[in-house]
């Protein structure tokens, strides 16, 4: 890391990086021309800054040119959405290799995340960061609920509280993530999650699902304490420990002689 940092201070390196970024961005844009209008800002300065960040923080796994490396997959073509999702939820940079990258403290500022995203987006066309009007609710909640139950609820639970997968993997809780992160996850399919591209769930469908989840979050629980909306396991646990415990206490009191 220190040798990298030392090389970075060399003025020629900055020029080289700038040049490389420009050539890659320009070349790939001309060659592949991503259809997605909001794919990525092609600001070369942002890209260059992103590349710097990438090489000092991500390259040890993903390779210096992001083509994949020791343990990390290639990031060519994953798009800005994947980077924004992984980094803004604190999953990347990976704290330690395990069965599944988990949410953690976010390591970068919003500006740095957008720089990283711009750099990775410049490597190849991929899903871009969704626009605000698709990720901030206001869609059809009923439709979103139906789509959620067909496509998402089997892993993420009927109320978006998450659930277990095989061998220690799990689908995370959706209640404390932003609409933008939900949208990006559907579009890019991080880790075990499959991809829900725009022909499977259209942008409007995704907006409806996000609106449904936002409604679930703010909705009043009509039946009282939800116990985390996790279903029969915590409910059974509560009945067997607290409920039966109280019955035993009352039974003991009933059988005791008064003073």
């Amino acid at each position: 890391m220190s040798s990298l940092a030392a090389r970075r201070r060399h003025p020629a390196a900055i020029l080289l990086v700038l040049l490389l970024g420009l050539v890659i961005t320009g070349g790939l844009y001309a060659a592949l021309a991503p259809k997605n209008a909001d794919a990525a800002p092609d600001n070369s300065k942002t890209v260059a800054a992103g590349q710097k960040l990438f090489q000092s923080n991500c390259a040890s796994c993903h390779g210096l040119d992001a083509a994949g490396g020791d343990g990390g997959p290639s990031l060519v073509g994953v798009g800005a959405a994947a980077v924004d999702f992984q980094v803004s939820t604190g999953r990347m940079p990976l704290a330690n290799p395990g069965i599944q990258a988990q949410r953690g403290p976010v390591q970068f500022s919003n500006e740095e995340i957008s720089q990283l995203a711009a750099y990775v987006a410049s490597l190849g066309p991929g899903p871009g960061i969704p626009s605000k009007d698709l990720t901030s609710g206001g869609g059809d909640i009923a439709k979103g609920g139906e789509l959620f139950r067909v496509n998402c609820a089997m892993c993420h639970n009927f109320a978006g509280s998450g659930g277990a997968l095989t061998r220690g993997k799990f689908a995370p809780n959706l209640m404390d993530v932003s609409g933008q992160q939900i949208y990006e996850a559907m579009e890019t399919g991080p880790q075990s999650m499959p991809v829900f591209n725009n022909s499977n769930l259209s942008p409007q469908d995704k907006k409806d699902i996000i609106s449904f989840l936002m409604n679930v979050k703010t909705e009043t629980s009509p039946g009282g304490w939800t116990l985390g909306s996790l279903g029969p396991v915590p409910e059974g646990l509560f009945a067997w420990t607290i409920g039966i415990g109280m019955l035993i206490v009352i039974a003991v009191w009933l059988g005791k002689k008064a003073a």
Partner: peptide, 21 residues
Amino acid sequence: MRDPEGTAIRLSDVTLGSVFH
């Protein structure tokens, strides 16, 4: 057909890693 919309699916719609119900 997609569940619940009932729309037909093209092969190109099913990109790598996709799941359609």
